[in-house]
Amino acid sequence: MIAFLLSGSSTMPNFSTNEFKPGLKVMLDGDPCSILENEFVKPGKGQAFNRVKLRNLKSGRVWERTFKSGDTLEGADVMDVDLEYSYTDGEFWHFMDPSTYEQFGADRDAVGEAEKWLKEQERYEITLYNGTPLAVIPPNFIELEITETDPGLKGDTAQGGSKPATLSTGAVVRVPLFITEGEVIRVDTRTGEYVSRASKS
């Protein structure tokens, strides 16, 4: 019955199809995956199956697989932690657990799109797989300084045109014309859009 048991060096528990809840992390074809959906199907008086949608946490791809009900998958040693960004040496981007000072190096694949939102001392959600960063998710909103943009035009108000502005992290976003170099703005990292001037701290 245990057709999908993958042997691994770790001692993660196995999960049966009836335990496949959204968010559960399991190993499939050697990759860590997160369960998105699990539908129990059983035609007539026939055999029961589970149609499962999973996200491959390495590639980000969504897989659809059908299992016999009762089949099991090995749990994946995956957890999400909040870490502080420290610095990059060009090959790895280093994050630190602020309570234990433990360091984690994320490679380019893991950092991905988040690279342009990396700011020192900011907290990021890091997905760890066997203790190694697999993905870096920036906070939804981040405040960054503008390092370069065309001078603002006097008298411009909030409405009207926009212009590109380069941020301290290298990201380029469109900002209203009245925003000037050196200002700190709030950006939505999910859309890459300007939200507002930063709140005065």
Binding site: G46, Q47, F49
Partner: peptide, 11 residues
């Protein structure tokens, strides 16, 4: 055979 037929039926 029946399990495959069941799958074709349900999916």
């Amino acid at each position: 055979r029946d399990a495959v037929l069941d799958l074709l039926m349900s999916h």
